[in-house]
Amino acid sequence: MITVDLAQKTVRELNQSLHTENNIETHREWRVENTKGGHNIAVGLDADIKVDIHGHAGYFCAGMNKTAKITVHGNAGQGVAENMMSGVVRVKGDASQAAGATAHGGLLVIEGNAGARCGISMKGVDIVVKGDVGHMSCFMGQSGSLVVCGDAGEALGDSLYEVHIYVKGKVKSLGADCIKKDMRDEHVKELQALLDSAGIEEDVTAFTRYGSARELYTFKVDNASAY
């Protein structure tokens, strides 16, 4: 295992090491220390490596991740795993706003709470949050799944496309065109698989599914008041 101490090295040096082919072929496990809330830690990885980040991370941690398994042993700032393509990003603490924003694939697990706009414009990522999510979560979510084991804030799933949303707790309010839907067998199976892959034990029958009413997909003059 390679240990990188951010008190000794810059984030740019760390990321360069994690992008250098020779390094990642010979060293599959990395440990990052002394993060002190620094931004852009472990961004743009494209290799089957494991990175453990000890301490709180700042903005855009694990952004654009492909294949790598990244764990933040602390809180993460805005935009954790934004635009992730594949791999697994796990945050042991809380995540700030816009976690998993625009992410295309992979799995993002947040063991604490997520702030506002979690999964905004998500495009295929699966996000599992053990705690609560803030307002406007899944705004304009296009594809993928959002699982919330706690409560959801205001305007959940506003202007939603095809994301599957599962919430165990209370939803403060639903956004435009987001509605409650039936949990069919396929959804129970999907939810169970998501919880299993996140390593979180929950009673799947306690969840409610939400999705798009598909009324705002294309502009209809009758809907003008909803914009």
Binding site: K36, G37, H56, G58, N75, G77, D94, G115, G134
Partner: peptide, 20 residues
């Protein structure tokens, strides 16, 4: 940003949260 708090004594054990 959290990084401005990182130098405070005992911050590792502090309750850290984002205001609602």
């Amino acid at each position: 940003e959290y990084q401005a708090l990182a130098s405070l004594p005992g911050i590792e054990q502090a309750k850290v949260w984002e205001p609602e």
